[in-house]
Amino acid sequence: MNDNDMTPEHELASAYLDGDVTAVERARVEATPELRALVASMREASTMIAAVPVVSEAVRNAAIASALGEFNVVSLDSHRRWPNKVLAAAAAVVLLGVVGVSVLQNTSDDKSETASREVEPKFDANTADDAASAGVPETAGGEAVVSMTAPIVIDNPQQLLALTVPSPPAADDGGGPTGSETTDAPADTQRVESYNLEALACMNDDQVFLADIYYQGALAIAVRDTVTGVTQAIDSNCTVLASVTP
């Protein structure tokens, strides 16, 4: 069938099929055998086109599951935008403060004391508490800053579980590191500093930050659920690399 085959009658028959005709046109179609035949052939074609094979349950479920998975990513992204901005701004402010203080201290005579505060974390699988504590350096102002040190190397779930929740120093102890305390302090009482802002945004309300880590070579954060005690390694894609139940 080419363009020349197409006649106004075809359009009339098609419109009749869709109920898109005037009373006069309807009467004309119904009174003309050739038009009725044309309508019948189109109706048969339309019926066949509309009779689509039923889609299988498995195909339907797979498509919807895939879409819902995308929905979770989209939702997470939308939730992550705002905290990331806040965290980035907070990190910038803290960084400026630390740099400013350092500059001031460099002008003082007590350079050795300043240097002693630049504590690098040393992880020992046998003394994980100490390692975690080493990740809680003290700023010049005497506040505890959680992490913002080199990520701790973690090779197995046991090491992950051994990490402790760093707590701020007592007000009267001079602001030193907190040793091997295992206080599960709520997240909002910490000043969380981390290299991994993306991963921080993955934390839920029940989780507290433990430390920046390399979990089996992957940059991540260690977090602990204050309700269940479950400790997890989470990367910047919110992938849980490890989950350890106490």
Binding site: M6, H10, S14, A15, S41, I49
Partner: peptide
């Protein structure tokens, strides 16, 4: 839209026939 539907249906009907 109307003309394309008409032509499409007519061609499908012809092909089936």
């Amino acid at each position: 839209v109307k003309s394309r539907i008409a032509r499409g249906r007519a061609q499908v009907a012809a092909t089936i026939s």
